[in-house]
Each structure stands twice: as C-alpha cells, then as structure tokens.
Amino acid sequence: MTQFLLLYLLFLKATLSSFSGMTALPILREELVVTQRLTDRQLNTAVVVGRLTPGPKGSYIVSVGQMLDGWRGALAAWLALVTPALLVLPLLHWLGKHAKSPGPKRALEAVMLGSAGLSLTAVVPLAQDAIDGPVPVLLIAAAALIFVRAKVETIWLIVAGAAVMLGVKMLN
C-alpha cells in the first residue's frame, strides 16, 4: 500500500506540474532514470507505447507505471492521470458564467488558437522522428487529409499506414 501511494504521489507530482502531453517527461526522467529505477530505453519504449495507443500521448505514464510495478503501478499512474482532470470542474463552474461576455469570449477563442500553435510545437519533433523519406511524408499528409475530410475510424488508418510501411520496406 505504501509503495502504491508513493508511486501515485510521484506520478501526481509529474502530472500536476505539466500543462501538455510530454512536459512531465523531464520530471519522470529525473525521478526514475537518474535514480536508476528505470533505464532511458524503458522510458523511450513507454513514450512509443503512448504514441501507438488511443487517447492522449501522455498515457505513456501508465506504461511507465506498468514497468515499475506491474498492474499496481499502472493503476497508480492511471489514478495520477485522472485526478488533476477534475480540477477543470470548479474552473468551468466559476468562469463559465462570464464566458459569454465579449472580452472573455475573445480570450477563450484566442486560447483555442494559441493551443493549436502550442500543439504544433509538440507535433514537429514527432514528425521529425517519423520522417526518413518520402513514404512517411505521404502517410502523414494522407492521414491528416482523410481525418479532416472523411469520417473514417482512425484505427483503420493506423492499420493501413503500418501495412503500407511494411510493404514498402519489404519491396526495398
């Protein structure tokens, strides 16, 4: 129980001090890799798992939890991921009342656009990792276009992209 609580608090510290997907990574690295509870390779594998699964990329923390203490660790990490989410409700309750006035409404729209810009900064390194020739570029463009234009379940795009890449590598 103490181990579970300690893990939960460690993950909570990381999630509470981050405001977007991967910003908890340096904290986890310092707490786990530097103290030799996890290797850099394991942490990288967890990040890859987070990118390959549905939901937020930040769910790599659940993978880290699993590596540290099996299902119990995964549970502690999941709890730490969902706990801060409820903080949005008091914000919604109090700020929601003023959201329809012109000034706050423009501020909210600006935050929406600003977060798009912010998210682009997170996508760029992922794209750099993925692009090693023309095929990934085509896959990225096709996936973005299909997502915007058509209502296809994204799981099928993932399957198709994986198959195309395997096919291309085998042909080469």
Partner: peptide, 20 residues
C-alpha cells in the same frame, strides 16, 4: 516498420485534429 508507419499516421492524425 509497422510501428514506423503507425507513428507517421499518428502524426498526420494529430495535425488533422489540430485543423478540425
């Protein structure tokens, strides 16, 4: 190779999501 393809698609989906 499979993961490489899946990650490329994931990047595209992220960009598409941003646009939406």
């Amino acid at each position: 190779h499979l993961m490489h393809g899946a990650i490329a698609i994931s990047v595209g989906l992220s960009l598409g999501g941003l646009w939406v």
